[in-house]
């Protein structure tokens, strides 16, 4: 069962930027890669720091705390020190509002 939660307008997550949001108790980082918004869990799988403090480089989310990288589309871990992926969430944009499926 999909559970779409509204997390804010697209204007708050411009191209090339990250934005940390909370949806139904889950901390999520939104990433706007080339105009498409993706969502993964806002917690680095290395030391649990928020990924939303990091940077979006291409389609990679860089954790600024220790340099781990994740694919913003899938949450896949791309280099150490992270050795595990983070959860990714489906995203939809309706009427300028971002919705994340946290089910």
């Amino acid at each position: 069962m999909a559970s779409w939660i509204e997390v804010g307008p697209t204007s708050e997550c411009p191209v090339g930027e990250l934005k940390g949001v909370t949806a139904d108790g889950s901390e999520i980082v939104l990433a706007n890669f080339e105009g498409t918004i993706y969502a993964i869990a806002d917690e680095c799988s290395h030391e649990e720091f928020p990924l939303s403090d990091g940077e979006l480089e291409g389609d990679e989310i860089l954790c600024i705390y220790h340099g781990a990288r994740f694919d913003c589309k899938t949450g896949k871990n791309l280099c150490i020190p992270a050795t595990r992926p983070v959860k990714s969430f489906p995203v939809e944009v309706r009427a300028g509002q971002i919705y994340v499926d946290v089910s």
Binding site: L62, C63, I64, Y65, H66, G67, A68, R69, C79, I80, P81
Partner: peptide, 9 residues
């Protein structure tokens, strides 16, 4: 830089 990312410390 792949084994020790610049962000490491």
């Amino acid at each position: 830089g792949t084994i020790i990312p610049m962000h490491d410390n």
